[in-house]
């Protein structure tokens, strides 16, 4: 990208609020989050348990609607989009890595990775298959392509989930405690992989983590306490 391009931030949150509850009894979980992320950033989101990290991530991931404020995704306002458009945007622009990997147990590693591709294209092409194999190779699972999740270790399952998140080559990947259930060695490996992918492809990462050791290795750290950004 040349220096003269007027670039849009990949993500721009302004005063985002989220309340839960109904029938008058509501609690605000996010009290006005403002946050801008540039293309290619590798950001850690830290904070104590219950501070609203997952909620914020889900709002950014268009899985939940904020109750106030605005969210621009690549410059486009998402608050007014109809359901189907949000679904389409999510499928195309955002990859997810969940804490509990959430792979489909009945599918092989390869099929799990191909799933978003199939959903996007509406059919299966040889190129998709090639890409899925390549991604699994990239995350170090070339020899596990036809394994079902049950036959893989926790770290390997999370690698499949990362490959799946990258399947449609989304500009933004959201990871909610991707190493939360892994031992230190496996966690380090996963983190290193995410970092490398960020370097190689310029994919923007927002990673929720508890581990200060890992957070320190990110180019930027956002800390959330009680639903507010403190740093």
């Amino acid at each position: 990208m040349s220096e003269h391009t007027i670039h849009t931030p990949i993500l721009q949150l302004t005063d985002v609020r989220k309340e839960y509850g109904s029938d008058g009894i509501t609690t605000e979980v996010l009290h006005g989050i403002s946050l801008t992320m540039e293309q290619g950033e590798f950001t850690a989101l830290i904070g104590p348990s219950g501070s609203g990290k997952s909620t914020l991530l889900n709002i950014i991931g268009l899985l939940e609607q904020p109750t106030g404020g605005s969210l621009l995704m690549q410059g486009r306002e998402t608050g007014t989009m109809p359901e189907e458009e949000l679904t389409r945007l999510r499928g195309k622009s955002i990859g997810f890595v969940f804490q509990f990997h959430h792979l489909i147990p009945a599918f092989t590693a390869l099929e799990n990775v191909m799933l978003p591709l199939m959903l996007e294209e509406g059919r299966l092409t040889p190129e998709q298959r090639e890409r899925a194999v390549w991604l699994l190779t990239r995350v170090g699972l070339a020899d596990r392509v036809d394994f079902k999740p049950g036959k893989l270790s926790g770290g390997q399952q999370q690698r499949v989930a990362i490959a799946r998140a990258l399947a449609v080559n989304p500009p933004l990947v959201l990871a909610d405690e991707p190493t939360g259930n892994l031992d230190t060695a496996a966690a380090d490996g996963i983190f290193k992989l995410l970092y490398e992918i960020n370097r190689e492809s310029g994919t923007t990462f927002l990673i929720v983590t508890h581990d200060p050791r890992l957070a320190k290795r990110c180019s930027r750290v956002v800390e959330l306490v009680d639903g507010r950004v403190v740093s």
Partner: peptide
């Protein structure tokens, strides 16, 4: 499936 982009 919904999270990774499956519509209704």
């Amino acid at each position: 499936m919904k999270a990774v982009g499956a519509d209704r």
